[in-house]
Design a protein around this nucleic acid. Structure first.
Length: 153
DNA sequence: GCCAACGTTGGC
DNA sequence: GCCAACGTTGGC
């Protein structure tokens, strides 16, 4: 089993929004970065655990725990000319963008802010904390994952 | 709103 | 295949 961190802008789609979905599940569409796509397509497996991270907001940080709920399949928005995520270079015969379904797993007692993460020596190696990091999907080690869950409980 | 970092595009 | 221009991300 692997561990991940996935960013979402809470104004667009928050951890609370995920909980409110009918099956507490959401297809993670709209990713248009090859590294992030490759993580979903090649490395994620159902059951992998996810730190659901709120970015580009007043207080960025980890809002809760989710899990990978499907294997990878083509992101349908790439074929939809009316979607902001439409990709004219993609076709159904050779899709370019893949996604997984993300499902609510559990709440944290407290939100774990980016500011808090930065305080801990054992998290300094996290890619999230490196300068210039922009990837919206990042692998996290088991130790980092468990440490952050502990901070939130 | 600013700006550093970084990915992508496209001309050559 | 290089690299300048451009667009986007995301913390502050």
């Amino acid at each position: 089993m692997k561990y991940w961190l996935m960013k979402s802008e809470p104004d667009v789609f928050s951890f609370e929004d995920l909980k409110k979905r009918p099956k507490k599940t959401e297809p993670w569409n709209g990713v248009r970065n090859y590294q992030a796509r490759n993580f979903m397509r090649d490395e994620m497996s159902p059951g992998d655990l996810i730190l659901f991270y709120h970015s580009s907001c007043e207080v960025p940080g980890v809002a809760g725990i989710a899990k990978v709920a499907s294997s990878a399949y083509p992101d349908s928005t790439q074929f939809d000319s009316k979607s902001e995520y439409f990709d004219p270079k993609a076709s159904k015969e050779s899709p370019r963008w893949f996604l997984v379904d993300v499902m609510f797993e559990k709440d944290l007692k407290t939100f774990v802010s980016l500011e808090e993460l930065k305080k801990h020596q054992s998290l300094q190696g996290m890619r999230l904390l490196q300068k210039g990091n922009r990837l919206s999907i990042l692998p996290v080690t088991k130790d980092e994952f468990e440490f952050i869950v502990k901070l939130g409980n």
